Amino acid sequence: MNRKTLTAASLTALILGSGGAMADTWRYAFEEALHEVQGQFAQKFKEEVEANSDHTVQLFPFGTLGESADIMEQTQSGILHFVNQSPGFTGALIPEAQVFFVPYLLPQNQDQLVSFFRNSKAIHELFPPLYEQQGLELLTMYPEGEVMLTTKAPVASPEDLNEVKVRVMTNPLLVSAYQAFGATPTPLPWGETYGALQTGIIQGQENPAFFIESTKMYEVTDHITRLGHNNFTTALMANKDFFDGLPEEDQQVIRDAVDAAFDYIIDYQTGLSDESLAKIEEAKPSITITELTEEQRQPFMATAEAVEQEFLKIGGPQAEAILEQMKADLAAAAEAAGGPVADETPTEEAEAPAD
């Protein structure tokens, strides 16, 4: 090769290896449709990146590149640059992420919840090194909405869940939580859930109201129960090599876009659960929507300690440190919001997604 050819080859390698000193297209996959919460977050992120850089963001909603496990593998391998995925699925890679499925750990009060996600040391300091070990840059975690249980028969106590098969994500701690509730947890990919409910293979599943409404899950259920046990959490990650290879100015563009999308999605969710439940009732007037009283919730809440102990067993080497820091963060969030720590019944508030 002559000197000119070597120089051109070196320049090409430098551009590709840098992850994008020049204008690039960044590929971003998520677990929901464009009109759902993760899709709204992704569109705001795309808007911010493209307004503040020469890069473009290509979005891949749920199903276009496979199931959750597929898009995670594609991100780790560098085929995708960004992935938005619940800790429910990353729990197999990062056992500590299962902490988000300890029931009644997260508050129902929206101000406390948002303060926790904004300021949590567990999220912003303890989790990133764990994600890094899996080739991922943790960019943010955010709430999507109160998780609600859908079933064929009414539920007012753990006894009502006896032998009820409830679809759960492929997450060991979520399985433990529903076992503690008295149900028979049945891990299934999301794409099989509607059909399994329709044919009676399973009798229940959990998700935020917006997701139950948008996926028409209410068509194959008769009862929606608000146990108050959790809020659906999701996380945005980048391929670690890609992110580290970017110049600082591009990394800052991404961080700023994440911050803007976080603020946007919190506002977007305000009142979303109530709106979604109203749409469900309009589409299916026969459906029953029940919010359990504090007294009715007590037997479910009593299972939280056992699930927490299970988390400490299976949640990885940092499980205890993560749990202790999260509890400290939640206490700080409650103090900042000026309210009691976890089990305050929410007023109409921000919500949203899931799986």
Rank of each mutant, 00 (worst) to 15 (best):
E146L: 13
A177F: 00
Y142E: 06
E96M: 08
Q98R: 03
Q98V: 02
V99T: 09
E96L: 04
E132Q: 15
Q203H: 07
P189N: 13
N171E: 13
E144V: 08
L126H: 06
N109A: 10
E192N: 14
G145L: 09
L126I: 13
L174V: 08
T140Y: 03
G135V: 07
G204V: 02
P154Q: 06
Q108M: 11
L113E: 04
N109M: 01
A196F: 06
A196P: 04
K152T: 14
N109E: 13
A153C: 03
Y178R: 08
S120W: 01
T199V: 05
F101M: 04
H124M: 09
N207C: 09
T151L: 10
A177S: 14
P107E: 07
E144G: 15
V99S: 08
A153M: 09
I123R: 04
E206D: 11
S157N: 07
T140E: 07
F181K: 02
Y178T: 03
Q134R: 14
L188C: 10
A183E: 03
L139A: 10
G200V: 02
N119A: 12
A156Y: 06
L149C: 11
P158T: 12
P185C: 10
L138S: 12
Q134K: 15
A97Y: 00
V114S: 05
A183S: 14
E132C: 07
P208L: 03
L161R: 00
V147K: 08
V168E: 00
K152H: 06
